[in-house]
């Protein structure tokens, strides 16, 4: 019983995920700064931002719905944390797993976007309502490619459990190469999910102030920010578990370091995309996702089906 609470609250649960999320944000910002040829923030920057926001005044606008407005950051936070427990980190077995946990993880990772939508909508400010509408339009663009890109490796492994998938790819390591295109598709979709720069249309600060988060301040904003950081880590862990499934059998110490390296590698790819690509318009983003990314994901699904048929024969 104590073990369960330790796993949920401290390691690898709440405390570890929060610290790792802040660390990943620092890594992202520092790498972005290095790529732009500048010094960048000091190592404690995300922590200082978090503490400062916690200590700031909490403004709830008069026209906003106070219940939904205050509930949404907490919901985003908890949904991301819950998704983390079903992902295999440094061993093939996740903290908790059953056949179908892949679907649960994907849907739990959808909840933060829905909280942005609801939080922005119920703030009833012009900018946050435009941001909310954009974030839900964007959801329909990237969600299908992401699901398809992760479905293809799962279909190859013949299971919907993330833990069993890592076991399968542990015994068939060469099949991972087949999923490289899916890895790129999932990275693009993850950029949309995290609302990072090529797809930061919902919070485009040059057009609509700060999008869904325009009216948020103080503690609520702090929780939204740390939820986004944690979502970055959880999404990267999911991609690492599905597309980089190696090094699970070396024990805790090496496996843990390998896990950190894998997640930071995915985060580095995300910040690289953030640095080299400018923001798209919402219609360009929809066209790109539905005309290029989704057909590519469908094509890879067919390729995987053919290869699976050839192997099993």
């Amino acid at each position: 019983m104590i073990n369960v609470f330790f796993n949920i609250l401290i390691f690898p649960g709440l405390i570890f995920l929060s610290i790792f999320g802040l660390g990943a944000e620092y890594f992202d910002r520092k790498l972005c700064a290095k790529l732009q040829n500048r010094v960048g923030p000091p190592w404690f920057q995300p922590l200082a931002d978090f503490i400062k926001l916690l200590a700031k005044e909490n403004v709830i606008p008069n026209q906003a719905d106070p219940t939904v407005f205050t509930l949404m950051p907490v919901l985003a936070f908890t949904a991301t944390l819950t998704a983390f427990f079903y992902i295999p980190l440094w061993q093939t077995k996740a903290l908790s797993s059953f056949n179908g946990d892949l679907i649960v993880v994907l849907y739990l990772l959808t909840i933060p976007t829905l909280t942005f939508f609801l939080g922005g909508w119920y703030a009833r400010s012009v900018f946050s309502m435009i941001g909310a509408a954009r974030s839900i339009i964007q959801l329909f663009a990237y969600e299908i490619p992401l699901f398809l890109a992760i479905l293809a490796p799962a279909m190859m492994a013949g299971t919907l459990s993330l833990s069993e998938m890592t076991v399968f790819y542990g015994s068939h390591p060469w099949l991972v190469l087949l999923n490289l295109v899916d890895f790129v598709i999932a990275l693009v979709a993850l950029l949309g999910k995290l609302e990072k720069t090529p797809f930061d249309i919902p919070e485009a600060e040059t057009e609509i102030v700060a999008g869904c988060l325009t009216e948020y301040s103080g503690r609520l904003l702090a929780f939204f920010r740390i939820a986004i950081d944690m979502e970055m880590v959880v999404g990267s862990s999911l991609l690492a578990a599905v597309f980089l499934p190696f090094g699970f059998n070396f024990g805790f110490a090496i496996g843990f370091i390998l896990y950190l390296v894998k997640v930071l590698f995915v985060v580095a790819l995300l910040s690289l995309a953030r640095t080299i690509v400018a923001r798209l318009r919402i219609d360009q983003m929809i066209n790109f996702c539905w005309k290029i990314v989704a057909p590519a994901a469908f094509l890879m699904l067919v390729v995987d089906l053919v290869v699976k048929g050839l192997i099993s024969r």
Partner: peptide, 21 residues
């Protein structure tokens, strides 16, 4: 801009007065 890089001091430009100090 990167020439002066005030993100060294943790300074970020925000679009909304609710986020800013």
């Amino acid at each position: 801009t990167p020439t002066y890089d005030i993100e060294r001091f943790g300074i970020l430009l925000k679009g909304t007065p609710r986020h800013a100090d």
